[in-house]
Computed example of a mutant assay.
Amino acid sequence: MTTLVKPKTLFIGLALLCVLAIWLSLALGPVSLPLLDTLKAALRLMGLPIEAQGLEQAELILGQIRLPRTLLGLAVGGVLALSGVAMQGLFRNPLADPGLVGVSSGAALGAAVAIVGGSFFGGLPDAVGPYLLSLCAFLGGLGVTALVYRLGRHNGQTNVATMLLAGIALTALAGSAVGLFTYLADDATLRTLTFWNLGSLNGASYSRLWPLLLVSAGVALWLPRRAKALNALLLGESEANHLGIDVERLKRELVFCTALGVGAAVAAAGMIGFVGLVVPHLVRFLAGPDHRVLLPASVLAGASLLLFADLVARLALAPAELPIGIVTAFIGAPFFLYLLLRGRA
C-alpha cells in the first residue's frame, strides 16, 4: 500500500508537533507567559542551573498548575489514541472506537455512583476520599469491560461480533443507569456529574497524575510489542493462527490493555470523545496500516491533539474554560466526516 508520508518523516513531524504543543500548553492560558521565560522556568524545574531573576511567577505557575495539566493531557491523549488503534485492530475496522467494549460507559456509571452516592461514602479514610471518583470510574470501566468480554466467550473462543453486540447492549444499559442517577441528583451533584461527563484537564494535580502515568506507560510499552501480531490479524483470524499467532491470547491482551488505558484516562479526565477514533484513522491515512508505525505515531498524534484541544478550551472563553470534550467533538466530528466523504469519493 502506498503511503503519503514516509515513517521517518512522520515521526519527526509528530515529535516536533508534540514539542510545540507542550511549549504552548505551558506558556499560554488566562495568564500568558513569554515563550522564552516558559522555557527557562521549565529548565529550572528540571534542575538545570538557570538564572532565577524574574522567573518566580513563571516557575510557580508552571510547577503548580500547567506542568501537571500538560502531563495529564499527554498521557490521556496518548493512551486514548493507542487504545483506539488496539480496538480498530481487534475488530479489523477503522471506524471502531475504544468505547465499543463498554469501558467508557462503565467508567461513567462508576463516576455517577461516586458523585451522586457520595454521601454513602462519608466514612472512608481521608487517604481514600480524594481518589474516590477516579477509583469508582476506573473500577466501573474494568467491570463492564470484563462482563462484555465474558459474554463474548463461548467454548473457549472469543467471538468478536458477539462481544461488539454485548458492548452496545451494556453501553445502553450503563447509560440508562447514569440517566437514573442524573434524575436522582440534586443541583450541585448534577452540575458536577454533567461537567465530568464533558471531560476536562482542569484541576490536574500530581496526586491524580501518577496512577495514570503508570498505567499509560505500561500500555504504551506493551501494545507496540504486539504490532506484528496485529498486522497478522488484519488478514483474518484463521490466517493469523496459521502464521503462529495465538489469536485468543492477543484478543485478551487487547481488551485488557484498552480497559486499563481508557479506564485510567476517563477516571483522571472524564469523558473525552473522538481522540481514539479520529487519530488512528488519520495516522493510518498518512502512513498506512502497518502497526509498527501506527501504534507509536498515534501516541504522539493523540497527545498533540489533546494538548491543542486543551489550549482552545482554555483560551476560547478566557477566563472561563470550555469542557475539553466539547472541543474534541467540534474538532473530531467534522474532520471524521471529511475523511469518510473523502474515502467514499
Rank of each mutant, 00 (worst) to 15 (best):
M1L: 08
L4A: 15
V5S: 05
P7D: 10
T9P: 00
L10Q: 02
F11H: 12
G13N: 02
A21N: 04
I22Y: 01
L24M: 15
A27V: 06
A27P: 05
L36A: 14
K40D: 13
L43I: 04
L48D: 09
P49G: 02
P49S: 13
A52D: 13
G54M: 12
L55R: 06
E59D: 06
E59W: 10
I65D: 08
I65G: 01
R66F: 04
R69H: 05
G73P: 01
A75N: 01
V76A: 10
A81T: 06
L82C: 09
S83M: 04
V85M: 03
V85H: 00
Q88F: 04
N93R: 12
D97G: 06
D97K: 04
G99L: 09
G106W: 14
A108R: 09
G110S: 10
G110N: 07
V113I: 14
I115N: 08
S119R: 10
S119Q: 09
G122T: 13
D126W: 02
V128D: 09
G129R: 13
P130G: 07
C136M: 15
C136S: 15
F138L: 14
G143H: 00
G143F: 14
V144A: 07
A146N: 08
V148H: 00
Y149S: 05
Y149H: 11
R153P: 02
G156E: 01
T158I: 15
N159P: 05
M163Q: 01
V178G: 03
L184S: 04
D186H: 14
D186L: 12
D186V: 13
A188T: 14
T189H: 12
L193F: 11
F195P: 00
N197M: 15
G199Q: 02
S200R: 04
N202P: 02
S205G: 06
Y206H: 11
L209Q: 08
P211F: 13
P211T: 08
G218N: 04
A220E: 00
R225E: 01
A227M: 03
K228Q: 13
L234K: 06
A240S: 10
N241E: 15
I245K: 01
D246I: 04
D246A: 13
D246H: 12
E248L: 10
R249M: 11
L254Q: 01
C257F: 10
G263S: 08
A264M: 01
V266L: 09
A268P: 03
A269W: 07
I272G: 06
V283F: 09
F285H: 10
L286G: 03
P289C: 08
V293Q: 02
L295D: 01
V299E: 00
L300M: 11
A301T: 00
L306A: 09
L315T: 09
P319Q: 12
E321H: 07
I324M: 09
G325Y: 11
G325N: 14
A329K: 08
F330W: 14
I331N: 01
F335H: 03
F336H: 05
L339P: 05
L340Q: 03
L341N: 11
G343Q: 15
R344G: 07
A345C: 03
